[in-house]
Design a protein around this nucleic acid. Structure first.
Length: 433
RNA sequence: GCCCGGAUGGUGUAGGGGCCCAUCAUACAACCCUGUCACGGUUGUGACGCGGGUUCAAAUCCCGCUCCGGGCGCCA
């Protein structure tokens, strides 16, 4: 059989035709021994297929088949037969069975889903966890979403870039950074590609995007924060805030459309009835947003200048019930690179009813005003010289935004905790695996 | 950073001073069973996070530690 296995092509469980001789490879999902007849359920990436073991099969093979431990990896050679009593309408009558890798009995979690496992247990055993259809589906969708985003960005003539993740200084004040040792100097893991993508706007590229990791050392402990997250960044020359928001809306909707069209099977596995958001999204100014939030009777009434609290976000989300933008924020609430008109900043956030997804703005492209803003926020312009340099020799007006991939997925798939949509999440207590 | 809550067999749980050498499900082991599809049946295996304290008696109450979950702040 070994020699045969090497030569024969592998067939997938979901793509078998009655009458053919095949070799299937996968995991032992379950063994059901009824006495005179037994069934091995084999699972591969495509689905499951039943292997029949009865007195028409070689006795030694039946013995090997019924003593398999769950989740062992096997190769089974046999004939596909039509059988209406089988779960998928077909089953395999085996002529050979090789155990390629035996799994230890007593699994740390149950991939067949009979008994739930808590998230920490699942994350410690992510490979086993990902054998469950509903978990696997999340990551298939995640891959599909990234593909859809890239396609949409290219339609918008944006060039995909990769900016450094090891940097000498903070992007802005506020968020704590992870310090690392860089030869004899101190360096940091970058919290955002913000400054680099802006520099690229002034290069020959004009319009750029990046889907990459960002690192934040904040010790938050919530279902919507990660210390390593994936940011979808966009920045474009000769674009204003209104146009940039429209792009964000379009990019978001394109991700929904792709999942809706191509991932129905995965959505079923997760149990989500996906609806593509209606466009255009609603626009609220910051003034309107705090007024609406206050009128919804939130506990701590907001005053002008306050950031939207979690309770306010929830109240707004409930009132609006769909994606929306909040524009014209108080100038003091936004970082130095956002363009300000007196008291307000030309900044915008895109919200899902459950949480903030995106933050962006019209950028300040005039180097003298940029210097003043850096100083006004208590930062040293000298530390940003590498950045300001790009503004001294021809920087076009520009706008852009950063959208959180994990939040986009968690809200799209109605998943409570963003950790669920990351293979190996990094949070306050988790550094491995 | 502040504030809550939790930790019981491999996994998920019940139990909140004595009724507990700890419940149920699943798993694992053995046996029975010829159509299962969360197969069924019988028997068995296996646990109170760590350290200290209170008490005649602690899984249960108290203190400290470790780990985990959540809310808030802030953010993507």
């Amino acid at each position: 059989m070994r020699a045969t296995l090497r030569r024969m092509e592998r067939s997938y469980a979901a793509e078998l035709t009655p009458g053919e001789d095949v070799v299937v490879k996968g995991w032992v999902h379950e063994v059901r021994d009824l006495g005179g007849i037994a069934f091995v359920i084999l699972r591969d990436t495509s689905g499951k297929v039943q292997i029949k073991l009865d007195d028409s099969v070689d006795e030694e093979l039946v013995e090997r088949g019924t003593s398999l431990s769950r989740e062992s990896v096997v190769a089974v050679e046999g004939t596909v037969e039509e059988e209406e009593r089988a779960p998928t309408g077909i089953e395999i009558l085996p002529t050979g069975l090789d155990v390629l890798n035996e799994a230890e009995p007593e699994l740390p979690l149950d991939p067949s889903g009979k008994v739930d496992a808590e998230l920490p247990t699942r994350l410690d055993n992510r490979t086993l966890d990902l054998r469950k259809d509903e978990v696997k589906a999340i990551f298939e969708i995640r891959g599909e979403v990234q593909d859809a985003l890239r396609k949409k960005f290219r339609e918008l003539n944006a060039t995909e870039i990769n900016t450094p993740k090891i940097v000498a200084t903070a992007t802005e004040g506020g968020t704590d950074l992870f310090p690392i040792s860089y030869f004899e100097r101190e360096a940091f893991m970058n919290q955002s590609p913000q400054l680099f993508k802006q520099m690229m706007v002034g290069s020959g590229l004009e319009r750029v995007f990046e889907i990459g990791p960002i690192f934040r050392a904040e010790e938050h402990n919530t279902p919507r924060h990660l210390n390593e997250a994936t940011s979808i960044d966009f920045e474009s020359a000769f674009v204003d805030d209104d146009e940039a928001m429209e792009f964000c809306q379009d990019v978001t909707v394109s991700a929904y459309e792709r999942v809706y069209e191509d991932c129905q099977e995965q959505l079923d596995a997760i149990g989500v009835d996906l609806e593509v958001p209606e466009t255009p999204f609603e626009y609220l100014t910051y003034d309107e947003a705090i007024e609406l939030a206050n009128s919804e009777g939130i506990e701590h009434q907001l005053e002008w200048g306050d950031d939207l609290t979690t309770k306010a976000e929830t109240a707004l989300g409930d009132a609006i019930g769909e994606h929306y933008f909040v524009t014209d924020w108080p100038a003091d609430a936004k970082p130095f690179y956002v363009m300000k008109d007196d008291e307000t900043a030309r900044a915008y956030d895109m919200m899902h009813p459950r949480m903030e997804l995106m933050s962006g703005g019209q950028r300040e492209h005039r180097v003298d005003r940029l210097r003043k803003e850096i100083e006004a926020q208590g930062l040293e312009p000298e530390e940003f010289e590498y950045y300001l340099r790009g503004f001294r020799y021809g920087m076009p007006p520009h706008a852009g935004w950063g959208l959180g991939l994990e939040r986009l997925l968690a809200t799209m798939l109605d998943i409570e905790n963003v950790r669920e949509v990351v293979l190996f999440p990094r949070d306050r207590q988790r550094l491995a695996p």
